[in-house]
Computed example of a mutant assay.
Amino acid sequence: MYSEIQRERADIGGLMARPEYREWNPELIKPKKLLNPVKASRSHQELHRELLMNHRRGLGVDSKPELQRVLEHRRRNQIIKKKKEELEAKRLQCPFEQELLRRQQRLSQLEKPPEKEEDHAPEFIKVRENLRRIATLSSEERVL
């Protein structure tokens, strides 16, 4: 089927008379290379020309890509902004509010139950005490 279409095309052009064109010839149909619209644009060509000129002069292009520079700039601005907000929050806190916070912290520390020494005891001592309780409970149950 494919060869029939090629023969029809060759017949239309009147090339069937020539013996070299009776079979499919890759030189018969050459596709044109498509133009890249970005490279064909005037702005792209100007930028490329400018880059070439800078390269010839020896002016180096920035070592960091533009995206990386922008992201670093944003991060830096965010950190600075955050620090400013923290400083303003501390300044706006009046002495009365500061004293209330201190008092609240002291009260919360006093309300905490003191840590027992049992909590810091080794594991085998805790297990031994549990075994004693179990032994005394089982002996009481036997009595009942």
Rank of each mutant, 00 (worst) to 15 (best):
Arg106Pro: 06
Gln93Arg: 14
Ala121Arg: 14
Arg76Val: 02
Leu107Val: 11
Ser63Glu: 15
Cys94Leu: 10
Leu87Ile: 02
Val70Lys: 12
Glu85Gly: 02
Leu51Glu: 15
Ala89Trp: 04
Gly60Cys: 07
Leu67Lys: 11
Pro114Arg: 07
Glu118Asp: 06
Leu52Gly: 11
Leu51Ile: 14
Phe124Val: 07
Glu85Tyr: 03
Ile79Gly: 01
Val61Pro: 01
Leu100Gln: 15
Arg74Thr: 09
Lys112Tyr: 08
Gln98Asp: 04
Arg69Phe: 00
His120Tyr: 05
Cys94Ser: 11
Gly58Asp: 01
Arg102Met: 10
Lys116Pro: 12
Leu110Asn: 05
Lys82Trp: 02
Lys116Asp: 08
Glu99Arg: 13
Ala121Gln: 11
Asp119Asn: 12
Glu117Phe: 07
Gln105Val: 04
Leu67Asn: 04
Gln68Glu: 15
Lys64Thr: 03
Arg74Phe: 09
Lys81Trp: 01
Leu51Asp: 15
Asp119Pro: 00
Lys116Tyr: 04
Asp119Tyr: 04
Met53Val: 14
Leu107Ala: 10
Glu72Ser: 12
Pro95Tyr: 05
Glu85Gln: 13
Cys94Phe: 06
Gln104Met: 11
Gly58Tyr: 03
Pro65Cys: 13
Lys83Pro: 02
His120Trp: 03
Pro65Met: 10
Gln98Arg: 11
Leu101Arg: 10
Pro95His: 04
Asn54Asp: 12
Val70Ser: 09
Gln93Tyr: 00
Glu118Phe: 11
Asp62Gly: 08
Met53Phe: 13
Leu51His: 15
Pro95Asn: 07
Met53Ser: 15
Arg74Met: 05
Ile80Ser: 11
Phe96Val: 07
Ser108Pro: 00
Gln68Thr: 14
Lys82Thr: 02
Met53Gln: 13
Leu100Arg: 14
Lys83Ser: 09
Arg75Asn: 02
Glu66Phe: 11
Arg103Met: 12
Arg75Gln: 02
Lys81Gly: 06
Lys81Asp: 01
Lys81Ala: 06
Arg56Gly: 04
Leu59Met: 11
Ser108Val: 02
Glu111Asp: 13
Gln68Trp: 13
Gln68Gly: 02
Val70Ile: 12
Asp119Ser: 00
Pro95Ala: 12
Glu97Arg: 06
Leu52His: 14
Pro114Glu: 10
Val70Met: 14
Leu110Gln: 14
Phe96Trp: 03
Leu100Asn: 11
Val70Leu: 15
Lys112Asn: 08
Lys83Gly: 01
Glu72Asn: 10
Arg57His: 03
Phe124Tyr: 08
Leu71Phe: 00
Arg103His: 14
Glu111Ala: 10
Val61Phe: 13
His73Arg: 10
Gln98Pro: 00
Val70Phe: 14
Arg69Gly: 00
Glu97Cys: 10
Gln78Ser: 08
Leu107Cys: 06
Pro113Thr: 08
Arg102Cys: 09
Lys81Glu: 06
Gln98Thr: 06
Ile79Gln: 08
Lys82Gln: 03
Arg57Pro: 01
His120Asn: 06
Arg103Lys: 08
Ser108His: 07
Met53Thr: 14
Pro114Ile: 13
